[in-house]
Design a binder for these strands. Structure first.
Lengths: 336, 336
DNA sequence: CTTTGGAGCTAAATTGATTTAGCTAAGAAG
DNA sequence: CTTCTTAGCTAAATCAATTTAGCTCCAAAG
């Protein structure tokens, strides 16, 4: 009952392992293996249910058929959904996915990157931490295939798939302004992350272009794992202090914290305070009132990420990079 | 700049690859390698930043340092959170995690199981589909290490980690009864899944032991991907038809659909209808009113799953099985 | 002075594929 | 009748580790 190997096939077919290998790898024609032998081998493969040993193949070729997926936090709805899409797309191309969560911690991200490299993944889909540019550059130098997702490094020339954050945030701002809000607040986090910076910029620019006063930017910079402890309280204090009539949250978990804060203050949405958040979330859809948000096309981000990666892995031309900057969508609900 | 191999270390240390291998694998003492040589080798390993090639090692030993995680749907909050915990625990033991989502489809699950096997994962953490018992049995016969999670097969003697569904559902029922509800409904899905059956049984038993009438069990059996299309409408029709004064949902996505249904009916919670759901969810925490639920100890499920798996992988005694049936927790909020 | 035993190490096989270089036979060309 | 192709295949090296079986000293025992 041992596993069938290529040698077994070869022996039973009365040919050499070389020939079997050619057939398996579709090089039969190229290597002039006869119709007869091809059929004999293929029949045996089916009959014995032969599956090439991926370790042996990997050892020889350096390919593992695995994609490394590094996200901020796989338990976050946005990344979990992304992971789901990536799983399917990767599978379509014959790849498995190994995942890991950075928690937005530099050291952890660096270590995970090394682990993935050590595992010899064929390609990386990364949502890097702010200082992971060094590690990413190393990968690039090592000619590894990778795609950055959700955020990128302006200094680095890489494949990238993400959303137009400037546009998205601008849409949110315009919408609030159009509703007649006067004192508009902005709540954000981790300003060193490019995607957050862009959202802040897109929003403030648009607000500044009007004559409305933007109250203030709160950069919470809460370590990822402490958001629950801290964020709600800080938002409450901020809201009390500045009494804005509308607030924009730059990400869904801040938005959710914001809802908790507003709920505990007992303020009415949208009459006392208008709310818009970046990213959609089931909570926003079901909340009373439902929360207006800037939704990212998660499916497409995932699909394009895998597509870009696969193209990079198989690329002929090493200098062609993919940059998919997708349009976000303003989902207008009842919160402003 | 080629990768350093064990041979390089051996050459530079002036010893044979064998000796280096012994040192790397902690067999130095056992194999009587001298202090001197051990130190020389270890210094070189550090200096050259040597990392054993996982393919070569895997080929020789058959071990990959990888755990296969098969869940129903990685984008689901429950499974995503589980995945997050499992990632950390696995990492602690030096394992990577490959994930995949069954969507509760038999053929897909079967295929994924084969893929994981083909990848030679060292162990499996599975939330099996109802008919995956055949595939699981094959794994058992092949002496593979595995842990079932969330659901199990009564006919199969496997490691298992999950929650006491009977107790949880019973707690939900008792709570509703204690609040004085009279016409209690139950909404469930995929009745062929053991964990759902148990929840139904735990709930109905407890209700039946009182003198209150249980309206009816609705078994939606909606294919996983069609829940959004169908479930809300079906629940609305059901509620209109039977006018229950309380309803229990056996899982969080049904609960969420239920909330949508109730919302669109305009019924007031908890005055017109009481609501309890199995599984916690952010939506339940933030909903107005907040929804009472039976929460599973996700962290512990994940931790015990990995623990049980690692023990099985390293086991001395092949007949010891782990069965962790954890206590769920009734989180009383404002919905009944 | 031979034998025994153990400390300290290594040669070589093995794992299962891929791949390079090249062999053989048959027919065509000269 | 020799030489050249080319179709059709294979031997053997290779990837980077692990592991078995055993070699070489040297000291102690007999």
């Amino acid at each position: 009952m041992r596993k069938v190997s290529l040698r077994d096939i070869a022996a039973q077919a009365g040919v050499s392992p070389t020939t079997v290998s050619f057939v398996i790898n579709g090089k039969a024609r190229e290597m002039r293996v006869s119709r007869d032998v091809i059929q004999r081998i293929e029949a045996l493969i089916k009959k014995l249910n032969y599956q090439p040993n991926s370790m042996a193949r990997g050892l020889r070729t350096g390919k593992t058929g695995t994609i490394g997926l590094m996200v901020e936090d796989i338990s976050n709805h946005f990344f979990a959904t992304l992971a789901r899409v990536i799983e399917d797309e990767a599978d379509y191309f014959g790849y498995d996915v190994v995942y890991c969560s950075t928690e937005n911690k530099e050291a952890r991200a660096q270590k995970l990157l090394e682990t993935l490299t050590h595992r010899q993944v064929d390609g990386y889909i990364l949502t890097p931490t702010p200082e992971l540019d060094v590690g990413v550059q190393k990968l690039l130098q090592g000619k590894k295939s990778l795609v950055l997702m959700d955020r990128y490094f302006p200094s680095l020339n890489t494949n990238f798939v993400g959303v137009d954050n400037l546009l998205g945030a601008s849409m949110a701002a315009s919408h609030l302004l159009a509703q007649g809000y006067q004192k508009i607040a902005l709540v954000t986090t981790s300003s060193s992350q490019i995607q957050m910076q862009e959202r802040v910029r897109g929003f403030t620019n648009t607000v500044n272009e009007s004559n409305i006063a933007l109250i203030k930017q709160v950069h919470l910079r809460i370590p990822f794992e402490k958001i629950k402890e801290n964020a709600v309280g800080q938002i409450i204090r901020f809201l009390i202090k500045h009494k804005p009539d509308a607030v924009f949250f730059t990400t869904n978990y801040l938005g959710i914290c914001g809802l908790e804060a507003i709920k505990s203050l007992g303020w009415a949405i949208p009459s006392q305070i208008g709310v818009v958040s970046f990213d959609d979330h089931i909570v926003f859809r079901l909340y009373e009132p439902a929360i207006t948000c800037v939704a990212q096309p998660i499916m497409e981000i995932g699909k394009y990420a895998v597509k870009a990666l696969i193209q990079d892995i198989q690329k002929k031309d090493p200098d062609v990079l993919a940059r998919y900057v997708l349009k976000p969508q303003l989902i207008v609900r009842k919160s402003c």
